[in-house]
Design a protein around this nucleic acid. Structure first.
Length: 812
RNA sequence: GGCGAAGUGGUGGAAUUGGUAUACACGGCAGAUUCAAAACCUGCUCCUUCGGGUUGAGGGUUCGAGUCCCUCCUUCGCUACCA
């Protein structure tokens, strides 16, 4: 037995013990209560970063502690292994994406093992593995059959020099990151998934997610963005043909008489289809086309626009108004055009002021700024004096009669564009005949595998450039055909991996229906940055699988924990800032238990965590003290039994600590305060061990309880100490300690005495003393009397086991 | 721009349901130990005119506000092709 705490030896031995005993393998058909604990699988970028360590430590602590409650815990791990960085590495380092990815996985897996995470590696999956993406292709074809997939033109960032489509993050200040060329927007035909068909159910079922953070639910609700409004047609006045009009969507039909112009997006049909636009307008549209396709960019630029010269008729007032093209109008929200009411919309107001467009007030208010609330109508002819609802209904009636409007529920959510013009992704399993008609690859020909021999030195999509891969014979007709060369968005793979973990070995089916009771996932843990996209897509896929009869539940994740980021000096760690921390260095120096303890102790999981090289020493020091005290207790030969009051208060503290730690871990996910209470009790126990009257049994019971409660957090040192305390079992399978509530209830309580809300003293009371008894104790206490004497007591507020507050007048 | 968070000592943070603000740590200071140092151990550590004051700023509700409400400031995440 080592005298000193030597984490590297201990951790290697304990990890070998776990390996030898297959400690992490989950028998999925075991009948005891299941607990599916899932941490978001990583993109194999090369090395684990500290954010991974945080994510996975939180998940592992939850998995291990629930196992101690007797649950059958399944905690798998895998790799989100398709994606852009592999292609970048291929170009930069002349290494094949599959090789780069494979190497990264090998390295990162060894790092995860070194950190002691209890993953069931027998169920490991890699999304770039054809065994995985085969099923994704299979499922896509089901959706195609159901007409939940379609193709349409959509804008991308185009790099005219590299002749390639760029991701938003690859466009820096409007220029391609590699070529430096000004990017252009370009429309290309792409595949879309009809997520909007599920908008209503994705919105409704948020109500089922009682154990999700409300912030995440709120963000999803707002992202889906359901609104009740109306479609309104504005006929074009220069055209006598009633077929020509501009359609707008509005939620404020009551303000229609205040519309002073229409604003359309630069890619609106009306702009595309009008031939005689002035140079001015054409130039403006060209300028807009050099902006990248992100909402963020579009909404933060200076608002600009030009008059197109086109005029339309307001269907209610019959007045003619101009049509402007404006850079802030989104082409894919609503109809891509806005009826602008400068008097009652902030953005329209700004724009009108800038270009001296008229403002017409139609809702009664005192302000000259944009008044955006609902109110009573004015300047609206026959609709004057109506309120919002009455006016909206009346105006809608008039529009309906003219065939120029209808009620409409609109969603901000758009269909999901899943096409990527990239190599390192899952091939979309369709092909085309020469006439452009689309055919699914037959199920028996799946998977459509990526070719290995690929040239990254050519411009454009490497898959499209491959000399032979895309040329095939149609399996139905034998005619010449061409494969789809787009691959899936990588969010596609991560939308269903949680389900595949349960049937990862099956070559016959995507999901074994006998595993249905394992869904939904009981606890999902991952970064807050995934609050919208990944989590919404996974929820969407779950419903698609349900409607395909593959699974039975409505939602994939019953409980969600969104952990915050790890910061250094208040900033996100990044290579460019040079403020990264390599977890390997920390593990080498202090061991896995120390980094796990530090990460769990330094902040609650949902908050950002500030990294500190100094503070980690403290965690190491604590483990050293734990090691030393445990050995001291083990080596105490004499049993000095003494019923001192010290022993009594240690025993009370022991049970109060178990209660608090259990509540913090299982109910609150506040591991930092759980650790703080363990430390507090440890400090008390340590002091007690140095006193004259000690009870060895109590010390043993105290330290054993500490070892158990720390074991999910620092599993190596605790297992080693467990052995040294004389136990032969696997600590992972030992039951969580139990609280003796009676010991806590019978202890004395300290309550606070306040006078007018100010702290004036403290008294110690028995557990069952009445309010009157407490009052007389307070009023006979001379230290407190001096604040009350000679004053009129107006009220006394007593909060059980907490405080008593005297409200007095004529305070001295 | 929109949506969602966060802001408490020198630092990370605690205060769970509106009830003792600063638990538990880090750092610092002093002591003990040592030939000396490291390690370990013990104590102290918000400000103060000693009445009191203090939770990003300013208002409000309440017997009582870090916590609830209003206005504002700063930082962070997401914003549909980073994952």
């Amino acid at each position: 037995m080592d005298k000193e705490y030597n984490p590297n030896n201990i951790e290697a031995n304990i990890q070998k013990y776990w390996d030898d005993n297959n400690s992490f393998v989950c028998k999925l058909d075991n009948p005891s209560e299941k607990f599916y604990c899932l941490s978001m699988f990583p993109y194999p970028s090369g090395k684990l970063h500290i954010g991974h360590v945080r994510n996975y430590t939180i998940g592992d602590v939850i998995a291990r502690s629930n196992r101690m409650l007797g649950k059958n815990v399944f905690q798998p791990m895998g790799w989100d292994s398709f994606g852009l960085p592999a292609e970048n590495a291929a170009i930069a380092n002349d290494i094949h994406p599959s090789e780069w990815t494979r190497n990264n996985i090998i390295h990162m897996k060894s790092q995860l093992k070194r950190l002691g995470y209890a993953y069931d590696w027998s169920k490991e999956i890699s999304t770039s593995d054809p065994d995985y993406y085969k099923w994704e292709q299979w499922f896509f074809l089901k959706l195609l059959k159901k007409k939940l997939v379609y193709k349409k033109l959509s804008e991308v960032n185009w790099d005219p020099v590299d002749k390639t489509v760029l991701a938003n993050e690859q466009v820096i200040d409007g220029k391609g990151w590699r070529s430096g060329a000004n990017i252009e927007r370009r429309e290309i035909a792409q595949w879309f998934l009809k997520i909007t068909d599920y908008a209503e159910s994705l919105l409704d079922d948020i109500n089922q997610l009682s154990d999700w953070p409300s912030s995440v639910k709120m963000m999803q609700k707002n992202w889906i963005g359901k609104s009740q409004g109306a479609l309104v047609k504005f006929p074009i006045s220069s055209s006598s043909d009633s077929k020509y009009f501009i359609e707008t969507y509005t939620t404020r039909l009551d303000t229609i008489c205040g519309v002073t112009f229409l604003a359309v997006s630069p890619s609106h049909e009306i702009v595309k289809n009008t031939n005689n636009l002035s140079d001015n307008v054409v130039k403006f549209i060209e300028k807009c086309n050099s902006l990248k396709i992100s909402e963020e960019t579009l909404s933060t630029i200076t608002k600009e626009g030009v008059d197109t010269g086109i005029r339309v008729i307001n269907p209610i007032t019959k007045k003619e108004i101009p049509v402007w093209v404006a850079n802030y109008v989104l082409s894919d929200y609503g109809t891509g055009s806005v009826m602008s009411v400068p008097a009652h919309d902030t953005r329209d107001n700004e724009f009108a002021k800038k270009y001296n467009l008229p403002t017409k007030k139609v809702i009664k208010s005192d302000t000259d700024d944009a008044f955006t609330e609902k109110g009573i109508l004015i300047n609206s002819g026959e609709y004057d004096n109506m309120d919002y609802t009455t006016a909206t209904n009346a105006i809608l009636e008039s529009l309906k009669k003219q065939n120029l409007g209808m009620q409409k529920i609109n969603y901000r959510l758009r269909d999901w564009g899943i096409s990527r013009q990239r190599y390192w992704g899952c091939p979309i399993p369709v092909f085309y005949h020469n006439d452009g008609s689309v055919y699914p690859v037959p199920d028996e020909d799946l998977p459509v595998k990526l070719p290995e021999d690929i040239d990254f030195n050519l411009d454009g999509n490497p898959l499209d450039n491959h000399p032979t891969w895309k040329y095939i014979k149609c399996p139905y007709t034998g005619k010449d055909a061409i494969r789809e060369t787009d691959t899936f968005d990588t969010f596609f793979e991560s939308s269903w991996y949680y389900l595949r973990f349960l049937s990862s070995d099956s070559k016959k089916e995507i999901f074994n229906h006998n595993k249905n009771h394992w869904l939904p996932v009981d606890q999902y843990i991952g970064g807050i940055e995934h609050a919208i996209l990944h989590l919404l897509y996974a929820r969407f896929f779950h419903k698609l699988f349900r409607d395909e009869g593959i699974i039975d539940s409505d939602e994939p994740f019953s409980s969600l924990l969104s952990q915050g980021m790890v910061l250094k000096d208040g900033h996100k760690m990044s290579k460019s800032k040079g403020n990264t921390i390599d977890p390997d260095d920390i593990v080498k120096k202090y061991g896995a238990d120390t980094i796990r303890l530090f990460i769990m102790f330094s902040a609650p999981p949902e908050q950002n965590l500030e990294w500190s090289d100094q503070a980690i020493e403290g965690s190491y020091k604590f483990l050293k003290r734990l090691w030393i005290l445990t050995h001291k207790i083990i080596n105490m030969k004499e049993v000095v039994t003494n019923d001192s009051s010290d022993s009594n208060s240690i025993n009370i503290k022991l049970h109060m600590t178990i209660k608090k730690v259990s509540n913090d871990i299982f109910k609150r996910n506040n591991f930092n305060t759980a650790i703080a209470s363990i430390m507090e009790f440890f400090n008390d126990l340590s002091k007690y061990s140095q006193s004259n009257n000690i009870n060895r049994e109590l010390l043993l019971s105290g330290i054993t309880t500490i070892v158990k409660m720390l074991s999910p957090i620092t599993p190596h040192i605790t297992q080693e100490l467990w052995f040294q305390l004389g136990f032969k079992t696997n600590l992972m399978d030992v039951s969580w300690p139990e609280v003796d509530e009676e010991i806590i209830n019978e202890s004395r309580k300290e309550i606070v005495v306040q006078v007018n809300g100010k702290l004036r003293g403290k008294i110690s009371i028995e557990s069952n003393q009445s309010e009157d008894e407490i009052k007389s104790m307070v009023e006979s206490n001379s230290n407190i009397r001096k604040y009350i004497d000679g004053c009129e007591i107006i009220n006394v507020i007593y909060v059980k086991d907490r405080l008593i507050n005297y409200v007095i007048q004529n305070e001295k």
